[in-house]
Amino acid sequence: MSADEKRLIAECIQGNTEAFGVLVRRYQERLFHCVYRLVDNVEDAQDVVQEAFLSAYQSLDGFKGDSLFFTWLYRIAVNTAISLKRKRRALARIETGDEGERAFEPADSSEDNRPGYALEQAELERRVHDALNRLSPEHRAVLVLKDLEGQKYETMAEILQVPIGTIRSRLHRARLELRALLEKDEEAK
C-alpha cells in the first residue's frame, strides 16, 4: 500500500470525508467494471459500488493494511454483488425466453479480416455474456476476477475469503459449465 493511500485512509478515520472522496474517485471505475459483470445491470452496479464504498468507509478503522486497499474494497463489493445476485435468484423468476437463433462460428484468428467477422465476434460476445449470466454468482465471480480483472488465485482467495484450492476447483467448474452452456446454445441453433 502506498504512503499516499495510507495518509488518505488516516485522514478518513479522522473524519475527513474529502479524503475518502479522493479514494472513491481513484477506484470507482475499476470497481464498477468488476461489479457490472457480476450484476449485469448498470444501475445495480452503481448501487452496489456506492454501498461498498459506504461500508468500507464505516469499517475503515478495522482495515489493518495486511492486504491492498483495493483488494479489501474488492472483497466488500464482490460480496455485496454476490449476495444481491443470490437474493435475485431466490425470487420466483418469470423467464422471458430470450433464446437467440443466430449462427455460432468458432473464433479463428486467421479469419480476422473476413467480411462479417466483426459482426460474428459481437454475436459471440453476446452469447458468452448471456452464458456468463446464467452461471451461479460464485462461478461468475471467479471468472470475472480471473479473466476480466486478471487477478491471481492468491488474491482471489483473499477477496472471496476461501482457500486457494476452492478457487482452483471453482474456476475449473465455472469454465466447464460456461463451455457446456455455449455448446448447448450451439446445438440449439
Binding site: 472522496g21 474517485r25 460476445e125
Partner: peptide
C-alpha cells in the same frame, strides 16, 4: 472472449453522491 467483453463507462462520478450520503446518514468510521 470474456477478456474482450466491453466495459461500460461509469456515467457519473460517484464520489459526490457517496460523500453526500456520508453526511446525510452521519456515517463515521467505526
Amino acid at each position: 472472449i470474456l477478456r474482450s467483453l466491453p466495459r461500460p463507462a461509469l456515467s457519473e462520478d460517484l464520489s459526490v453522491r457517496i460523500v453526500r450520503t456520508i453526511h446525510e446518514r452521519r456515517l463515521a468510521p467505526g
